[in-house]
Design a protein around this nucleic acid. Sequence first.
DNA 1: ATTAGGG
DNA 2: CCCTAAT
Length: 676
Amino acid sequence: MVPQRRVDYGFNGYQVPEVPRSSRSARGKGPIRKKLECNQVHAFEILASVAGKLLESENPLPTNGSCRKDPHYNFDATTESKQQKAENLLREDPCEWESYDEEASVPVCGVQRHQQSYTLNQFSHSQENFSFEMNTTSKSNDHLGTVTFAKKLGTFDNSSSCGSFSSKVVSDCPLSGDFIEEKAQVVLKRKLETEPSNDTSIKDGKAHVLGSSEDLVKMELKPPELVSSEHDVKAPFLGDCKSHGPFLCHYDNVKVVSRDDDENSMGYVQPCTIRKEFENTPEGGDREIKNLSASKHRRIAPDMKVGGYSRTDGKIKQVYRNGRTCYAHQRSQKIYPFKKRRFFNRRPFTTPDRGCNCESMFSPPNKRENSGNCNAAIGPSSSTTGRQPLKSNDCKVKLSIKSFKVPELFIEIPATATVGSLKRTVMEAVTSILGDGLHVGILVQGKKVRDDSKTLLQTGISRDDKLDNLGFTLEPKHAKLTYSQCKDDPSFVSGRELTRHSASLVSRPGTSNVSLNPPVINLGGCVEEPFNTVPSLASTSIDKTPTASQALVAVPPISAKPLAVVPFHRKSGHPAYVQRRMRRPFSVSEVEALVQAVEKLGTGRWRDVKMRAFDTAKHRTYVDLKDKWKTLVHTARISPQQRRGEPVPQELLDRVLAAHAYWSQRQAKQQLKAAI
DNA sequence: ATTAGGG
DNA sequence: CCCTAAT
């Protein structure tokens, strides 16, 4: 056996987030995704198997357990016992086990048994032990108890293989947070004292789990392969992953080139894995891996069942699997927004079924200063250092932004989560929106400056008397999602219009040193751009262009609504929050490919069109192609002035019309024939 | 799973 | 793009 070094993932006590919603349409259901879900099933089955064994004496698991939430995780009632299955799975797919130490590989779900159900609540994994907690609940009793299981993994080095297993029902009452881990540790210790051997079986006869210690050890020693989902990783493609990264496909004379750099979706793991190699230096390797574990890199287990690792030229490839919802992904738009209507219809800020209102963890909105206000406070230095003569063109405007306020975030997290996980959650949410979900807005005297082409002089920002009234805002790029909830709220009459105009989260009077004029709200009347001129600025502005004042738009003082919610622990019963797919405008080359395919195949065979021209573009479904064709026909019919987006060559549009006419006529003929 | 069409 | 109905 190749000597391998064990990797400390630095993991301890994560709350297990929910797995992505299994599926809802053909969209995005690539083979790899299925595989992932499969693996999650495995993960849960294994855990359930372990738990079942442990509980067997008192509460045997049913032979056909079912997840409360997602039927996808139903166990199939095969002759093979779950335990056996789990053991086999562990043997065959050790890397799946490895994936446990990531936050998300194990679904939160329960196993029904009569009136009782077991809910995997939490698990932790450190170098020394593995433990998880399950709640037992019943219909009559909301919370019967909590059991915690811990497993000693042992320490490994290159040559030795040892490990032991320990488990015990720790408590009959609910435990939470760190206490659970403490308990687990205690139990572990106690067991170790009595069972210092390498045997993985439980001597008390209550449980015999996971086969032999050898299996366990083997599993542990097999280093997973490390996968990075970073877009910038230059890496060879893996397995059936054909189209990650730039792809080319040639059909006839049409070449479609797609950047395809955003395959990742938040709800499920990107169905491709990229290997990233690391030097197997004694120190550097581990450190790097640790960093990766703690960072945005995802862990993805290899798709293959065996041989989860490989060595090439002294390099170890590690693959981690990730089934988590990726909160902290750089592309925040993939994370936010969640489908807002669904989301906000269910009062996301309370967790009634947990009896925990996490809102209490944050200041109530009415007590929050600057609630929802993301204005930057302009420090005194702005007024002092910013005083510059106006006449000079090269005069510098010096600004000091004391701090930005991050738009309000609501986070839902179980009370049993650790403080550390809370920090992580917040951090991930913050980094997500900072990564790509925000842009900066400028407020002068409370008026939003919209025209980016205006100079500071023109907008008055260079004037010291304006500097005192200069504000910066962090605005969600996807304001629509942020505010969609307003539609349901009669008090937000202008909610819809605001969304249409990318209303920013704005300051409220007195909440910052940005002085706000009395808020001007464009209620229903506002149709297009709400260009509310600001006479005061226009009169004082040195700008000669009369449009300067029009660049200032009154910012309605809508009260801040949560920018986004991080559903850290979605409860079963809650429909998954489905995010809208990222918008991906068709490039001209894509349009050309589409046109050519439709010319050949007709308008009613989108599946064939997809296969012919977009087979490798996973993000283009046949529905997308059909929709695109629809819009293309529409685009071709309207005047060029009305068209938006990247201009499509007229030649292509002509072909669209021609093809559409041809195939429409042909379809009509066919129908006529059929009628006869 | 695909197709068609409305939103 | 999403959603649904109808195949």
